[in-house]
Computed example of a mutant assay.
Amino acid sequence: MRIIIFKRPSWRNIALWGILLFVLFAYRENVTSVFSGKLKPIYSASVNTQSIGLTFDISWGEKTAEPILDILKKEGIHATFFLSSPWADKHQSLVQRMVAEGHEIGSHGNRHIDLNTLGESEIEHEIITAQQVLERITGQNVRLIRAPNGAYNNRVIATANKLGYRVIQWSVDSLDWKRPGPSAVVNNVLNGIRSGGGAKAGDIILFHASDSAPDTVQALPTVIQHLKSKGHTLLPVGQLLSEANSTWPPESNLKEKPLTPPK
Rank of each mutant, 00 (worst) to 15 (best):
Ala65Thr: 15
Ile123His: 05
Gln96Asn: 11
Asn153Trp: 00
Ser121Ile: 12
Tyr152Arg: 04
Ser84Ala: 14
Leu72Tyr: 02
Ala100Cys: 07
Glu104Gln: 15
Leu134Glu: 06
Gly119Glu: 14
Trp60Asp: 11
Ile113Val: 15
Trp60Val: 10
Ile123Trp: 05
Trp87Met: 05
Ser85His: 06
Lys63Phe: 09
Ser107Thr: 08
Ala79Tyr: 01
Gln92Ala: 14
Arg143Val: 04
Thr49Trp: 03
Asp114Glu: 15
Ile105Trp: 00
Gly61Lys: 00
Ser93Pro: 00
Pro86Asp: 06
Asp70Tyr: 00
Glu66Lys: 11
Ala100Phe: 03
Asn116Thr: 09
Lys74Met: 08
Glu126Arg: 06
Ile52Cys: 07
Gly109Ile: 08
His91Met: 04
Glu101Gly: 09
Lys63Asp: 12
Ile127Gln: 03
Ile123Thr: 05
Val95Ala: 07
Tyr152Gln: 08
Glu124Gly: 07
Asn149Trp: 14
Ile58Glu: 02
Glu135His: 08
Ala147Glu: 12
Gly76Tyr: 01
Ala147Gln: 08
Asn110Pro: 02
Gln132Asn: 14
Leu83Pro: 10
Ile68Ser: 06
Glu120Lys: 15
Gly106Cys: 04
Gly76Arg: 05
Phe82Ile: 13
Glu101Gln: 14
Thr55His: 03
Ser85Trp: 05
Asn153Tyr: 04
His103Asp: 03
Asn154Cys: 11
Thr129Gly: 06
Lys74Asn: 12
Glu75Leu: 02
Thr55Glu: 04
Ala130Tyr: 00
Ala147Val: 09
Ala88Met: 10
Ile113Glu: 14
Glu120Asn: 12
